[in-house]
Design a binder for these strands. Structure first.
Lengths: 139, 139
DNA sequence: CCCTAAATCACCCGAAAGTATGAGCGTGAT
DNA sequence: ATCACGCTCATACTTTCGGGTGATTTAGGG
């Protein structure tokens, strides 16, 4: 029964195609040449590029005097890995970005930052950066 | 003579058109839809934006000679309330603490900081502080 | 008077940050 | 060899941030 129904539908479809062969042909031509036009335009047109200049602000350290306060770092017991994390933190990087930059996992960075916060006696990364700058641990 | 020749040629052309009406119709369709495709592609293709980073070197503010870069603040359209929030942010305060300090709700601080991030073109508060310092918006 | 901008606040939701805890590994000192 | 320590990573959980949206109020300029 289902097969019969399907057959009938198919025959109907064939009839439709036969009766409207011309329109379908025209439609196919239209679609094909629209596609061709799009392809042509994309291939042959110069890529529209909009150049946006973006200023990048860079701190210029022209031999001015920033000396790392080694005593402070030692006194607080900050390891060099922690210092690296702190520096990247001060540049505004997220933990994820720091992790990628140092080729370690996000959890490791979290551990480092947690230890850093304890050693600096702070609660947040912004506070850590502020404190570290005031103590001349980072420029 | 020339006119006659022209007339003959014209009649010939008419005949050609008559005999090949279908092909010409198809050809016209093809041309029109190729044009449509080209137009579509040119209209709808989004221009590729290329961001060119341009280095801007910042003078180091040695010692305590800090002058606020008013032009920068105005250029970025930072309101004074936003500036207050930014300053407290730089001191490492949480949004909650800033809210309490300024006697407003936490949501208000969130709104201010969100607007700040947009204006400073940053994604995080640490980045905002870093950028603001480099642009001499805050000491 | 209308319109705009600043400032205020609320709610939701997902992402990021931060806390707590435990554990494995290598290195240098005892 | 063992111990301490730095570094690594994980899991689970809580808190904070940040994005998006919309609403209200107030002050100031056209």
């Amino acid at each position: 029964m289902a097969i019969l129904l399907f057959l009938l539908k198919w025959l109907e479809l064939r009839l439709v195609i036969f009766n409207h062969a011309f329109e379908i042909y025209i439609g196919a031509i239209a679609v094909i040449f629209t596609g061709l036009g799009i392809w042509l335009a994309l291939k042959l047109s110069k890529p529209k590029t909009v150049v946006v200049e973006k200023a990048v602000y860079i701190q210029q350290h022209t031999g001015n005097g920033f000396v790392v306060n080694e005593q402070e770092i030692e006194k607080l017991g900050i390891s060099n890995r922690e210092l690296e994390v702190l520096q990247l933190m001060a540049e505004g990087l997220s933990n994820q970005e720091i992790a990628e930059k140092l080729f370690v996992s996000l959890n490791t960075i979290k551990t480092h930052s947690s230890n850093l916060f304890i050693k600096l006696d702070v609660k947040r990364r912004t506070q850590a950066v502020d404190t570290a700058k005031k103590r001349r641990i980072i420029p």
